[in-house]
Amino acid sequence: MSKVICPPNVLEEIRLDELLKRVIELKHEGLRLAQACAAYAQGKLELSYSFANDETYELTTLRVIADVDEEVPSITEIIPAAVFYENEMKEMFDVKIQQLSLDYDKKLYRIEEDAPLLPESVKEERRAAAAAAGDAAQAAEEEKKEEAQD
């Protein structure tokens, strides 16, 4: 009979500013980055970073809940192998990941559509906001022009 060690998965909810600190801690504990992914639920982005322990088979998942437009630091400085996971998050959910060591610029999977897994409503809001900002900028410019004419 083989030795079976099946510990339950650990889910640890942390704040966004604690992320890098915890990742460094887990790396020094000798854990391997097993996966990182994003999901969208209740208007927020859920980022999961899973670390596997190859001896006890425990899977520790760091869960960060971020706003859709919040900037997320990249963990590639600490774990270079995370680069594909973070590029995937960026392409699929448009997670604003800062300082990626190798940025495929949302073309890892070469999908034409922007953020294909983000719900349409979020993208709609974003477009509306962008349009509003564009209008405001245009108005300001026109005003400036008028002032210059005066």
Partner: peptide, 28 residues
């Protein structure tokens, strides 16, 4: 280990990880 290699690729380098030992289905 640092690059997160899995499977026979990792095991050939000495990583002892085989997820079947986790004990799913009838593997226990």
């Amino acid at each position: 280990h640092d690059l997160g290699c899995v499977g026979p690729f990792g095991r050939a380098s000495g990583l002892p990880s085989d997820t079947r030992t986790r004990g799913y289905e009838a593997y226990p």
